[in-house]
Design a protein around this nucleic acid. Structure first.
Lengths: 214, 214
DNA sequence: TAGATTGTTAATCGATTAACAATC
DNA sequence: TAGATTGTTAATCGATTAACAATC
């Protein structure tokens, strides 16, 4: 497998790209054919230069005075992020947050296709959320071997997180999107992406305090 | 109101503090009395110096060779972040994600107390989620005047986000935790904290790709 | 006392922002 | 052509990491 021109994008850039993408998908729907970096910057409250730099990592070429072709730009970001691929995933913990992720149609446009959900709660097992079946967690091992899924989404209660993560790793999951506030301990080779929603609460409260002090 | 010694914490630090907090709350529960920065760093996979620096912004004092008193440390972080206050909030959009936030007990330990939820879906209005009532969105204005709530949590579908945000601002909400992928346009003075969960998908996929290329 | 850890100051690293030439 | 915008290189800014003295 050739490495090709794997352009490096910084993590901040990587996190902004899906935001551009969502914004631009709406722009495309409106029928806008071209868009310039300064225009995007105004709407998204970013620095214009930053927009140019961020977009350039995807390989898109713009035209001075005109900007970028919106459709090409969307394609370019999607390809760069692998969002055009069907990245199949298992979800663990079919509670409210898990259900929200399953039900949210946008997740698919962000490259993730949930194949099945697992839960240990007998009341939930057998249910259908959208068109995703909730299976008993003890069936994971068997399905893992058959389906060769690499991505796992962890939305269990905090208490079950570590244990579930170990199960996931044992079943061949190599990338975990961890939406619990638990710091997981796993063997090397498993990529863990922690998403602490509550970190944002801290920032919000602080910003509000600061804007009051002025 | 005196500004006092409002110590500045960088946004990265601010985002890490709730992670320390959750971790340390568990440590306290285990009955551990003291903990050192290097120990925390090992568990959370941070740099030891960074832990020392992060914790110091809260005003905590540690002892060389001993570390910090775990209980004091938890208190110190909570106070610094205002998580010990009851920061009351309204939630807009009682779908799966909204329900998840309402039901998740940890939100309260992160300083946010949801008082009521609003939705326009007649099926949801009148429901109770936990002990939170789901009210019709058109009742917000009236309650806003009575209760003087400043924080709004936005979990509506993307299509309704802008419109709802405007309503919130008009009703006196000055801080919005925006969990939709929409870039909100509001008058100055309203603090907006965007939480794009999907940004993390981009980072996860990229990290997995990189670890495969090795 | 010896030595690990705190706490602070300095060095490094990386991301953002500014400057500017190229170009449509 | 004129001028706005791209794309790239340089400067700045800020966060992380390293170094080290103080101390329990």
């Amino acid at each position: 497998m050739p490495k090709g021109k794997q352009i490096k994008a910084s993590e901040p850039t990587l996190k902004r790209l899906p935001i551009y993408l969502h914004y631009l998908q709406k722009v495309v729907k409106k029928g806008v054919l071209n868009i310039s970096a300064p225009y995007v910057a105004r709407d998204l409250k970013y620095d214009p230069t930053q927009v140019v730099k961020d977009l350039s990592v995807t390989g898109i070429k713009g035209k001075p005075r005109v900007g970028y072709n919106t459709y090409e730009l969307v394609k370019s970001i999607e390809e760069f992020l692998d969002f055009n691929k069907r990245n199949e995933a298992f979800l663990f913990g079919a509670g409210n947050l898990g259900s929200a992720l399953i039900s949210y149609p946008a997740l698919e446009s962000f490259g993730i296709k949930i194949i099945a959900a697992f839960d240990i709660n007998e009341k939930k097992v057998g249910e259908k959320i959208g068109d995703i079946n909730v299976l008993n967690t003890n069936m994971f091992q068997e399905l893992a071997e058959k389906l060769n899924i690499k991505i796992g989404i962890l939305t269990t209660p905090a208490e079950a997180a570590q244990e579930t993560a170990e199960l996931m790793a044992a079943g061949g999951i190599t990338g975990i999107w961890n939406l619990t506030p638990v710091s997981l301990k796993l063997p090397e080779g498993v990529v863990i992406q922690n998403t602490s929603m509550y970190s944002n609460v801290a920032v919000l409260l602080r910003k509000m305090k600061e804007s009051n002090n002025k």
